[in-house]
């Protein structure tokens, strides 16, 4: 084995009723990689994320995260093992403040039990304060600290994406799954997002899988791509290889490209 594997899918299939969303998919993500997962709409990219994070249970095949089979475990267990994700249709806690969104991601860190919490012991307040300070650090990192008190639902699109990333980072993941983070962004915002992805990749020693339709972002961040179509892997390789791969061109452009 060349590198330590962060994530391996071995012959994973998943269907919904009669529709095969994913068929016999095998792919590997090595530690420290940024892998782009691309493909036409409905290719099954988000289903892969849902399988890896335990939202769906695979019908067959194995999902291995850091040498441990995690297929079918409940999401909160998989998250606690070091997987974090963002959603295609942003899922923030809209009624809560920007700061509280990140605070909640840190919920497993305060060191007190239920008894101490109910009794309102001093250490509860101290621990909570420590968590708030930590949450602010994450907001600083994505440039949202001046909006900490704002309602998350009131954030403009690009910033909401950033908050979702901050919230995922607060989970202290080893593997970060980004589902179309650039959707709906303008070119300036995409340039900022590119910087952010490369920065957190380096600073947090992360492995990243990125689903994205914006090829400028994919080409700039992902040294390796995996292409899905109709739930199967049709190509894999560097952006240059993918751009000239006839099967990929056919999937995107049709029979007579």
């Amino acid at each position: 084995m060349r590198d330590t594997m962060m994530l391996e899918l071995r012959g994973v299939s998943k269907s919904f009723g009669g529709i095969k969303a994913i068929t016999d998919l095998s792919m590997e993500v090595a530690e420290g990689e940024i892998v782009g997962l691309i493909g036409p709409n409905g290719a099954g990219k988000t289903t892969v994320f849902n399988l890896v994070t335990g939202v769906y249970r695979p019908d067959s095949g194995e999902i291995v995260f850091r040498g441990e089979s995690v297929g079918g475990l409940p999401p909160h267990v998989i998250v606690s093992k070091g997987v974090a994700r963002t959603f295609q249709n942003i899922r923030l806690f809209n009624n809560l403040s920007v700061l509280d969104n990140v605070k909640i991601a840190l919920h497993s860190q305060p060191e007190y039990g239920l008894g101490a919490a109910l009794a309102g012991l001093g250490k509860v307040a101290i621990e909570n304060k420590r968590i708030v300070a930590k949450a602010r650090e994450f907001l600083d990192m994505v440039g949202l600290s001046d909006r900490a008190k704002l309602r998350a639902g009131a954030l403009p699109y690009g910033l909401a994406r950033r908050l979702e990333i901050a919230r995922a980072l607060a989970l202290n993941p080893r593997l970060l799954l980004l589902d179309e983070p650039a959707a709906g962004m303008n070119p300036d915002e995409i340039a900022d997002l590119k910087e952010l992805i490369l920065k957190i990749h380096k600073d947090f020693n992360l492995t990243i899988v990125l689903i994205e339709h914006r090829m400028d972002l994919v080409m700039a961040t992902c040294p390796r791509l995996v292409v899905l179509n109709f739930g199967t892997k049709i190509a894999e390789g560097s952006p240059e290889e993918i751009q000239t791969n006839p099967q990929v061109l056919q999937a995107y452009l049709g029979e007579d490209y």
Binding site: V79, S80, R85, L96, D100, P110, L118
Partner: peptide
């Protein structure tokens, strides 16, 4: 005290968005 503790945070997260809450590692 309950609401202001991490137990309360978890409850609020479940109210706001159970799917996102689960992805925050909340049981």
């Amino acid at each position: 005290n309950f609401i202001l503790s991490k137990y309360g945070w978890r409850a609020i997260a479940v109210r706001e968005d159970p799917v996102a809450a689960e992805m925050m590692g909340i049981d």
